[in-house]
Each structure stands twice: as structure tokens, then as C-alpha cells.
Simulated assay, not measured.
Amino acid sequence: MIGHAAGAPIILAPSWLIAAVVLTVFFAPTVRRLAPVLGDVATYTVALVFVVLLFVSVFLHELAHGLVARAHGLRVHEFAITLWGGHTSFAGTGATPRSSALIAVVGPLTNLALAALAWVAAQALPMGLVGAVLYAAAFANVFVGVFNLVPGLPLDGGRVLEAVVWRALEDRHRATVVAGWAGRVVAVAVVVWALGRPLLDGGRPSLFTVLWTVLVGGFLWNGATQAMTGSSAQRAVEGLSAARLARPAAVVPTTATLADAQRAAQAAGAGHVVVLDDHGRPVAYVDPAAAGAVPSASYPVTPVLGVCVPLPPGAVVDAAATGAVLAHEVNRVAPSSPVMALVDAGRVTGLLFTRDVVAALRPRT
């Protein structure tokens, strides 16, 4: 972490150093051609300055995303500068197609604005080393801005496409799938264009071109796939319902016998029994395996607590809990208990098993 902006930490990933070194080496020949009188140290210093300016542009791109997201009521978690440029993490429940499109498009527009500023500044200077760096910064920002507007996830243009389809279909998940497949098409197109163009011209792509094309194409394909997978997972979470997933349960006091528990379960048509203390709080539930090991003739004299699994304090969930709220409650309780008592209007009506929640998520993800 190197600082904070818009209330969120700025993370400079170690992988950024790899990109900085590669881009510096890549840009150094251009500097040497423009200013042959410079020594090797000065040449690479100027190249590094250009790379730093490029990553400042990337940061401003991400900062623009974060500021607009925050203005629309979303929480910004972090700004990260990585090997592939950067990303902004934010979350919230107030996203709409309009806000999503605005958050996405402001990043590339920032780069295009920076390109215009660099171009104007370069025009005001005589052609030289500083002017050349400004021209390079202008072209680099144009490339970053225009490329990010390509309509396919994980690019910003893909988010805009997602927002448009979301607005049309009123289904964000389907919109993400459409934009994700568009991103996959873009990934394939990048690879075909970069590797096929030299072949059509009668040559062969260099090893450097092959490596970077595969890396960029793989990044785009994986980003699109992760977006679709994440959307499926989010849809599954949104479909969670404590009332639907819970198993019906009868209740008995701590003084009950196993026979009392059996009668209560039969009367309620429930497969489980929850034991309540004197204040009506769930303290345990009957373990079917332990109860099954007791001879039926001993049920009337077997204390129900002798065949129970304790429920730790707080192992309860409201029957109205759904979606992310339910997922949060399960995550909160799971380390201490795989089972939660379902409470509906102050009454214990069932048991919610963590494995049932996980099973409800797994098929969709």
C-alpha cells in the first residue's frame, strides 16, 4: 500500500515492477533514436519516466472509476496497480444500468482527456526529448482509452455493453453473459489479428509478439470468464432463502425425554427437534444418529439432552434472511456450528444446515 484516495487504499502490486522493467526496456530504443547524444543511463532514465507517467495515467483512470462509483453510493475498497495496468474494487447494492455505464466509461474518457492535454503540451514545445515523451504519452493514453472502450468484458467497454443489455433485458446476469462472450470474441480477435497479420504479409510474428499476444489474449479470455462465473455466483447468492432452505423442526424444553421429542416431531410433521432453555432460546438439537442408537423402550427415560448436539450462542438466523445477508450469517456462524436455528417472528421453526446452503450455491457456480 502506498497511500489512500477516495477513502480507499492504493495498492502497488509487486508485479508492477515487472511491467515497469519490460516497458522501460521496450521504450528505450525509441528514446535512443530520438536523442542519440544521451548515454545509456540517461536513455533508460527517460524511458522509465515515460513508464511512470503511463502508470500515473492508469491510476487516474482507476481513480475516475472510484470517484464516480462513490458518487453513486458504492463503497470503494481499493485501487490496485498491477502487471496488467490496474483495477478498482467497489461494491454496494445501489448499482443501476445507468450508474454502471457511467462508472465504466469515465475511465477511458479520462485517458482520452490526458491524451489531449499531453498533445497540446507537446505542440507548445519544440521537438525534442520532452516533446517526444509527451507525444508518446498522448498516443499511449489514446491507445489505453480506445482499447478499453472495446465492447467486451473485462474491458470498460464490456461494462458499458453489459449496462445496455441489462437495461434492455432487465437481467444483469444475462447481460454479463452477453458481455462476457463478447469479451471472449475480442480475445480471439486480438490473437488472430496480431499473429495472422504478419503471416498474411508473408512474414512471421516475432517471439516477443507471440508471447505478448498470448498473454493479452489469455488475460482478456480469463477476465471475461471470471466475470461470467462471478455473475453466476452472485445470482446464486441472491437466490438464497433461509425459509426455503431450512428443515422444519419441533421444539421441546431441556427437561424433555426422547419420547417427548419423538411425539413433538410427529405432531409437527418435522424431521428435527430443537431444545429450548427456560427463556425460549435454542441451546441444542437432537442428533438423529444418536437418537437412533437408543432402544425405543428406553425413549421415555432417556433425557433429550443426552442425544443432542449443542448450539452455541448466536447460532440463529432470521427466517426472512435472504441473499447476501443470509450468506453473511452463515459465514459468521459456520466456524462454531454447522447448524443454525431458524427463528420466525420470535419462534424457532426449523434448522438451517450449512451444507444445504453450500449445495444451493454449488450447482449454479
Rank of each mutant, 00 (worst) to 15 (best):
L220T: 13
A359F: 05
G230F: 04
T45D: 08
Q226C: 06
I11A: 10
A95T: 15
E170F: 08
H65E: 11
A19C: 00
H72F: 11
R347T: 12
L117Q: 06
P108I: 05
R355G: 10
I10W: 01
A101V: 04
V146C: 05
A121S: 11
G306C: 01
A293F: 01
V294K: 02
V58G: 13
V22W: 02
A95N: 13
L17I: 15
T302M: 06
V185W: 03
G128N: 05
P205Q: 10
T254C: 11
I81W: 10
G239C: 12
A121G: 07
A179P: 13
A113F: 01
T302E: 07
V348S: 09
D40E: 13
M1W: 02
T24D: 06
S89K: 10
G94L: 14
A182W: 01
G269K: 03
F208I: 03
A121W: 06
G131L: 09
Y299E: 01
P151D: 03
D156W: 10
E78G: 11
P36W: 00
V286Y: 02
V178E: 10
L74F: 03
Q123I: 00
L215A: 08
N111R: 12
T24H: 06
A64P: 01
A259M: 06
L60V: 10
V130T: 15
L54H: 10
T229N: 09
R174S: 02
V150H: 00
R332Q: 10
A137K: 04
G217N: 05
V191P: 08
R204D: 04
V348G: 11
R355T: 15
L48A: 15
G3H: 01
P363D: 09
A268C: 05
T354V: 14
V150M: 07
P310G: 13
A187Y: 01
L220D: 13
V210L: 15
G107H: 06
R247G: 03
V51M: 08
P338Q: 13
A69S: 06
H328Q: 14
V348L: 11
V190N: 10
T254P: 09
P300N: 12
V210D: 06
R235Q: 14
I2P: 12
N148C: 08
T93F: 01
I103K: 09
L134D: 02
V210E: 05
G230E: 06
Y135C: 11
F79T: 06
D278V: 12
G269Y: 03
A163S: 14
R204W: 12
G131R: 12
G183H: 03
F50C: 09
L342A: 08
I11E: 13
A341P: 04
A138T: 03
N148F: 03
V144R: 07
A91Q: 01
M340R: 07
R184M: 15
L199A: 06
V58K: 08
V343A: 12
N222W: 14
G292T: 03
N222K: 13
A175L: 12
N111S: 15
A168M: 00
Q123K: 00
A80W: 00
L195I: 07
A113Y: 00
L220A: 15
L109H: 01
Q226A: 14
G230S: 10
F147M: 05
V286P: 02
A136Y: 00
V251M: 06
T209I: 03
W166V: 01
L125S: 03
